[in-house]
Nucleic acid binder design. Structure first.
Lengths: 246, 246
DNA sequence: TTGAAAGGTTGTATAATATGCAACACAGTT
DNA sequence: AACTGTGTTGCATATTATACAACCTTTCAA
């Protein structure tokens, strides 16, 4: 582990979560180093375009260099290109925000998303890593990848399932019915429905789903919406060359 | 300048341009360090999610962590959200790929893009930094920001303007007619048309434009297409609160 | 099966370098 | 004018990154 590189990467993390830039003194406090060291780290980041210093406020923000990096990552995920039109169709049919995620580092990585036309909508950012046990997409990834259930399950809302045994049973239900529902288990007021996507070799390529406010997605409306999600997920599997998709 | 951080950032640059991952030995050669050092640098990057090692090939690729970074950058550019529907409209009207760029570090930074529905299309990646003097978007940014023309102008194709005096005159033409054309000056076979976007204070917010193969964008078709581009650019200016936009 | 080659990781002494301290510069406040 | 908060630079020192070497694993050919 190389310390100064690690510090630089921590600075990038800090910058990613900062709205209005960060000053040198703040960096120094967060990292537990002298402000002179922080200053030099930021100079290095800036010289490579990974940070930019506002000439007036002298505060630093993320540099535009990182945009080039994300293109490189997204290019690695061919599923994304195939999925986008399917997501558009899914949002068109359901009126809700749709997204697609893959398994990455034991989390659900959102790789693409299409926004709902409605004013009241769920915003999800591409690149977000979400927990598996309390999201519809995540549950699908667990159930169809036959993953084990983690020991400790963090509660995000009062509705989050925190009992591994209960979750295990729930995963079997998901597997049987072919889709998963997140019932305000991750964010209060938001319900999600997701279904698996399979590649040409029959392996789980990812999961597609929709999310919306509970008001628009009542309990008795779930089966119909789940049908649409599964239909489009199946459509995507077919586009990926999966022959068992109908 | 902190050396080991700089090396780490250079590794990110290498990874961004690699298609199939890079091995430790290659890194060591590129950086001019021992492979043990390269190994430790990559371990650090991997532990923060900025690099990922393929378990089979042991080669490294960029980590998904960078996606979160780029979201942060794009959030800083509110123009992008406003622009996207306008770009869609522009692509719908012209059938060509449309994009929007802002001035950043003396270059044109592409912040959004909508692809042409046609098979034959110009691919542009978000985050790309393009030269100003030989792109339509760049020319617009020079002309309407009243920027000086650089001394030395790199030739990308035989059609690139390399004479500063000639370019200066050309900028005056762009300013008068309200749009710029890139006539295979950056990439052979590709013609682009761009127009400026102004914010609520009347300042240049960016430039929008279209690009397509010369076959679909003949010389005598340029004025009509330029009219559409200017119309949509004007539309975007109005959405940004620019009152002088009609 | 054996041997060699290529690529990656880990231990360690040393030399390079990142660090904290202090001084300085600058802007905004009292 | 003095003060306070913030960022940058010079410098001696102690930390740490580095190269070297040994070791491990996989691949490929004899």
């Amino acid at each position: 582990m190389i310390q100064s590189l690690a510090r630089g990467l921590e600075i990038l993390d800090l910058l990613a979560n900062a709205e209005n830039g960060i000053g040198i003194t703040e960096f120094a406090q967060h990292l537990g180093v002298d402000k002179s060291s922080a200053s030099r780290l930021l100079q290095t980041l800036a010289s490579y375009g990974y940070a930019e210093q506002n000439a007036d406020t002298r505060r630093y923000v993320l540099g535009t260099r990182v945009l080039a990096l994300s293109n490189s990552v997204l290019r690695r995920i061919p599923l994304r290109d195939t999925a986008h039109p399917v997501l558009r169709q899914l949002t068109y049919m359901t009126g809700e925000c749709s997204h697609i995620a893959i398994l990455s580092q034991g989390k659900a990585l959102y790789i693409d998303q299409v926004e709902s036309p409605s004013i009241l909508r769920v915003e999800t950012e591409i690149g977000t890593l979400s927990p598996l046990h309390c999201t519809a997409l995540g549950k699908v990834l667990i159930a169809f990848n036959q993953l084990g259930v983690p020991e400790s399950l963090k509660a995000y809302t009062p509705k989050t399932m925190t009992d591994p045994v209960q979750l295990k049973l729930h995963m079997e239900l998901v597997y049987r019915q072919g889709y998963a529902v997140d019932d305000e288990e991750h964010v209060l007021g938001v319900r999600c429905i997701a279904a698996p996507v399979f590649d040409h070799r029959g392996r789980v390529a990812g999961a597609v789903g929709i999310s919306g406010p509970i008001g628009r997605m009542p309990n008795d409306g779930v089966p119909k919406l789940a049908g649409m999600v599964m239909e489009l997920a199946n459509d995507l599997s077919r586009r990926l060359g999966n022959t068992s998709a109908t």
